[in-house]
Simulated scan of single mutants.
Amino acid sequence: MKQNPSLIALVTGATDGIGKETARQLAEKGVAVIIGARNLEKGQSVVAEFKAMGLDVETVQLDITDEVSVEQAAQTVDARYGRLDILVNNAGMSVDRGPLSELPVQDLIALFETNVFGTFRTTQRFLPLIRRSGHGRIVNVTSSLGSLWTMTDETSPYYQVSLPSYAASKAVLNVLTVQLARELKESGIKVNAVEPGLTATRYITMPGAQPVEVGAEASVHYALIGDDGPTGGFFDRHGPYKW
């Protein structure tokens, strides 16, 4: 990486899918990107692939469910750069395999450990580094399924989609986004939630799913908004999304 990059971004869960594409698009825009990789070998493979494209990237081992891993990753970024300008909380999971009434509580705990507690843990630990940036940006990758409108309005496009525990975790993340944005408003740090849309990944092969290049657009856009940009909002690539 460049010694004094103008912008430094960390993307969690960035070894494949939307996270990997978000990292690529940010790097193409001149951002020095750190690939957050639970599996360091996979992270190094992505770095080699991107460097062959001439992109400015590196990786750090980061398992957001592991407090020690998060702490060590933050220390590494602090030692190398002393700040972080952009945090894209992309890492997430889904465990829904049937009705909510039959979901093992252990599955719900594991889901929240990643989608909620892991994201919060990472944000909280990296926040001191983000405060040192003159233009800190936090992007939480949530989902339209976490929208109360989507869950309750029969005219919404995803009303019939039933992933209840995943939806609950993303609804919680939306609330945390709003509350953190309110807390940090006077600091100039922008905190927003983004909905990628139905995107084709190794987990999603549904007809009509958009390519990852499209799915990453909202994350990249709100990672790079100016000081006059919004905070505490919920957006897809077209603009504001209904809560």
Rank of each mutant, 00 (worst) to 15 (best):
N4V: 14
S6I: 09
I8V: 08
L10M: 04
T12S: 08
I18Q: 00
I18S: 00
G19M: 09
E21S: 08
T22E: 07
E28G: 03
I34P: 05
G36L: 06
E41T: 14
K42H: 11
S45C: 08
E49A: 12
D56I: 08
D56N: 15
E58P: 09
E58L: 07
L62G: 01
L62S: 03
T65Y: 13
E67W: 14
E67K: 14
S69W: 02
V70I: 14
E71L: 13
E71C: 13
A73V: 14
A73I: 14
A74L: 13
T76S: 15
T76K: 15
V77Y: 04
D78S: 12
D78H: 13
D78C: 06
A79H: 14
R80L: 13
Y81R: 10
L84S: 02
D85S: 09
N89L: 01
N90W: 03
G98H: 12
L100K: 02
V105F: 12
N115G: 03
V116L: 03
F120V: 09
T122R: 03
L129S: 01
R131A: 11
S133P: 11
H135M: 13
N140E: 06
E154L: 07
T155P: 02
P157I: 00
P157H: 05
Y159S: 11
Y159T: 10
V161N: 07
A168S: 12
A171T: 05
L176M: 11
L176W: 10
T177L: 01
V178N: 06
R182E: 15
L184M: 06
S187E: 12
I189Y: 04
N192Y: 05
N192W: 11
V194D: 01
E195L: 02
E195M: 02
P196F: 05
P196C: 01
G197Y: 01
G208E: 02
G208W: 00
A216V: 08
A216W: 06
V220E: 05
V220P: 02
Y222N: 03
G226N: 11
D227Q: 14
G229Q: 08
H238P: 10
